[in-house]
Simulated assay, not measured.
Amino acid sequence: MAEIGHADAAASFDPLRPKLIRVAYRMLGSVADAEDVVQEAFIRWMGAERGAVREPEAFLRRTVTRLCLDQLKSARRKRETYVGPWLPDPVVEEEEEEDVTLPLMLALERLSPLERAAFLLHDVFGLEFEEVAKTIRRDPAACRQLATRARTHVRQARPRYQVDRQHGIELAEAFFAASRSGDMKALGAMLTADVSVHADGGGKRAAATAPIFGFDAVMKVHEGLAALFRDNGSKLVRAGFINGLPGFVTLEADGELQTTALEIEDGKVAAIYVVRNPDKLRHLH
């Protein structure tokens, strides 16, 4: 009987799993943590009175969101001791995902857990405030206030410059070629005057421990990197969209993967986001 119950729970849960992981990942910024939360939700689903649940998707979304809120409290403490800039785990997408880009995910980090939940559930996933209220156990008026406050904080992080898929991939491939070959003239022509680099090594691989700002500083860094790439190599695995931004995955000389995502403004690269922390790249293997 237990096996029948397990199969029954899985049959109703598995079609919803990708949606639930999407919610959890956007709440937490970590693929592994999102998968753990969704698995915990499945365990709770197995033990629930499923016959009494009229809307399994709403029930499970509430469960996942509440588990994420609990996790965010401890995640915030970990971030305070994180070595260097923190970036969300890179997700390489088949298509450009415009709802939550990497800059927006970084802006969400500055919100309280409840603001983050209200904003994502209402503004991104399109839920009515009555449903948001049930999920985070606040009244609808409070949820409206939370979402409004969140919107004010993240407004600047919404994508202002849309890049079509093909053009974005071409830009990413051109950036890879110029940065690896040491063609500084071609690279410089791609960058805005106030370009920045944000590299997440997590203290586990070499990376700048603070963001680098400005054209001259970024060019100097890439001149140094070009010499390293010449001696050690850097192989393009694939180009695509990473957290909604054009970018690429590379295999570096140390045998580890790396992702580079490019924020584009008016056809030029305004920010470069590099993830080198191997813990954040395991799912890409």
Rank of each mutant, 00 (worst) to 15 (best):
D99P: 00
L72Q: 00
R138L: 14
R137N: 12
A117K: 02
E40T: 15
Q258C: 13
G267C: 07
V274M: 09
R44C: 12
D70M: 12
D70W: 11
F13R: 12
E263P: 03
F215K: 13
A41M: 09
Q71S: 11
A178N: 05
R238P: 10
E223M: 12
E128F: 13
P88H: 00
T259A: 01
Q156G: 15
L187F: 09
A206W: 15
R110P: 04
L111K: 03
K220G: 09
K134S: 15
L72F: 01
A9R: 06
E170S: 13
S181T: 08
D33C: 10
I136V: 09
L104S: 00
A239S: 14
R165S: 13
H222R: 11
R138M: 15
D266V: 13
P246V: 05
A253S: 14
D231F: 08
S112C: 00
D266Q: 15
F248Y: 15
A32S: 15
A10L: 14
A107M: 05
L146W: 06
S179V: 11
E128Q: 14
G29F: 00
N243P: 05
L236H: 10
G247D: 00
G201A: 03
G51N: 08
A217I: 10
D183V: 02
S74K: 13
D254A: 08
L114T: 04
S74D: 11
G188I: 06
E95I: 05
L87N: 05
V197C: 08
V195M: 02
A226R: 02
H122K: 07
L120W: 00
A75I: 11
A208F: 14
Y161K: 10
L60I: 08
G188H: 09
E57C: 03
R155L: 13
A48W: 08
D36F: 15
G84I: 04
L225P: 06
T250V: 15
V53F: 03
I169N: 04
F176L: 06
K235V: 14
L102V: 01
R205I: 02
F129C: 01
V274A: 08
L228A: 11
D14G: 10
L114D: 13
A199H: 05
A178H: 06
K204T: 06
R238S: 12
G267N: 10
I169W: 03
L108A: 03
P113H: 01
E3Y: 12
G168K: 03
